[in-house]
Design a protein around this nucleic acid. Structure first.
Lengths: 327, 327
DNA sequence: CTGAAAGCGCTAACAC
DNA sequence: GTGTTAGCGCTTTCAG
């Protein structure tokens, strides 16, 4: 089924048929209708490859995430796909499995057939991100690279509120369970926490976790307990959830003996007790990122817009009471 | 940057360069190395569109889901992407937002640039699925269409165990909260439940919910209570979670006054009390689906393999005790 | 408003 | 083991 077939059957030239599908406004409406009808009858669909070869545009974008199974990403991906779809773009999904080299492979291979990228929480080093951006425009989520479009979720608001809240309750030492080493978000969260804790005169102990998972959170419990801290702030809600499950196994009551705070607000009130967390609005980030990328593609000019999404503390039950006196 | 440029610089013909990237084993290793080097230096990447136009193959597949934010799908998508990636395929993601027509649009547009589809829990009617399969091979997940490849999660094992368990505890009436009308899984679950309940002599009351969401579950609580049932089985864990949250708001204890069972096992022990559920193994389904599609693409022949994944009941705290006597 | 013709970058016979 | 020669199906000047 090609343009040629339709041209013959409709008694027009190939060019006319082509125009029916690319610039119908240039044609006599009657011709358009006739051709459309023939095409419909034959179940014709344009050959994307041929069109792409001829125009140099693919009509595709890619969104790459470290782990689609991490609940922070699906809402983001969903919005990107929905937004792109309305603009006529198809969306590739890449999952780097949290490893930088896989991310590099994926983006490299995808770059041959996409107009641009949304890179969410990329684990790639800045140099490789820049190189890639030269080939195809990139919009970053949760990664701050000067000169590129980026959407950043700023944890400082939420972190300040979290520390203020813990301070008010009388906590003096808090554990931070870190995320992946390559994660910009993790660095931001550490930094924001350090700053907030410093000005409140609170001790921070950092426990390195690597891949954020419920298991990692559960395994961190003994370290948390031996630290002497009375509160823990986890890299994300999934980790926080693991901590709570580990704590519960040892019969340690939350929040009476340990306060727990997560990040991203991905679990709503689905935990017990309901988890206090720092908001993240991943859907909004997806919207903004898609919008930005599409604007860049529309204009053809790199825009280094930097969108910052503030966060706040979502108070729930895991930080309800003052720490129990020990020692 | 084209094959021609490299050919000139390396002092070989275009065909040789082409072969370096498609069938290097046919060439003198020295030539391959030399050409590779030149290509590398120039940062050459093959033009996917041109290759696709020439070969008729795109090296892409698509996976389409009704809602990527529903926790059942990400593990599935993840495995499909990982498996496809290893075979050199890139993967498109389509999210139909639970509406059949959007699914039709997506698949139709994608069909111009993919080798095949994985359709997970499609909402499309059988006719349109068949039509699409004529264009490109389809592997279905949780949808049983004769003649197509499909991976089916069979709820009957889990449902039998669930009813047996509830029966043992003394429950006599159970509410089923349904999923989307177009969902094959929902029909299977209803059917399996009806069969199991019938042979146990248990009453089943069906409450129609439509889109499965936590909110829908919460809103169903009054209906559940007025039904006189002592147990509820929800279409999925997300809905079950909503039910529990609604029950908790009304001060109704689970499991003392109401037992709750979910489906899909997507929340692990993350709820409180921990949710009894019927397993679903979406990651395994993703593996199987990808494997099947890739096998079809490799052989070029439609295989109507039908893979059935059994389920079982995962006992947790929400079904721990016998129903409290009322009335 | 429509047609003719050139060519996008690559692969695949077919020669040599 | 390598080069020559045709296209793949579409868009796009350029004419008319």
């Amino acid at each position: 089924m090609t343009i040629g077939d339709i041209a013959d059957l409709a008694g027009v030239s190939r060019s006319t048929v082509s125009r029916v599908f690319s610039r119908p406004e240039l044609l006599n409406p009657a011709t358009v209708a006739r051709v459309r009808q023939v095409a419909e009858r034959l179940g014709y669909v344009v050959n994307h490859a041929a069109r792409a070869l001829s125009t140099g545009r693919f009509g595709n974008i890619a969104v790459v995430v470290p782990d689609i199974a991490n609940p922070f990403f699906p809402p983001l991906v969903r919005r990107v796909q929905a937004r792109a779809d309305r603009e006529g773009y198809a969306v590739f999904l890449g999952d780097s499995d949290e490893v930088a080299d896989r991310e590099a492979d994926l983006t490299q291979r995808l770059s041959a057939q996409v107009e641009g990228f949304v890179l969410a929480s990329p684990r790639l080093d800045e140099d490789r991100i820049r190189e890639l951006d030269i080939q195809r425009p990139i919009v970053l989520v949760n990664r701050d690279v000067e000169g590129l479009g980026r959407v950043l979720i700023d944890p400082s608001g939420g972190m300040d509120e979290a520390i203020a809240h813990l301070d008010r309750l009388g906590h003096q030492r808090v554990v931070y369970l870190s995320g992946p080493a390559e994660s910009w978000s993790d660095q931001q969260r550490r930094q924001a926490l350090a700053t907030a804790a410093h000005s409140a005169g609170m001790d921070v102990i950092i426990l390195e976790l690597g891949r954020p998972s419920s298991e990692a959170g559960r395994d961190a419990v003994s370290g948390i307990l031996s630290s002497g801290a009375t509160a823990v702030i986890a890299f994300d809600d999934v980790v926080a959830q693991g901590v709570m499950s580990g704590l519960s196994l040892r019969g340690i009551d939350v929040p009476a003996r340990m306060s727990v705070i997560g990040c991203d607000d991905t679990l709503a009130s689905g935990t017990h007790p309901a988890l206090t967390t720092i908001s993240a609005a991943s859907a909004a980030a997806g919207d903004a990122a898609a919008e930005l990328l599409l604007a860049i593609l529309r204009s053809g000019e790199r825009e280094s817009t930097r969108i910052v999404i503030p966060t706040h503390l979502v108070l729930r039950a895991t930080t309800d009471v003052a720490p129990q006196q020990t020692g």
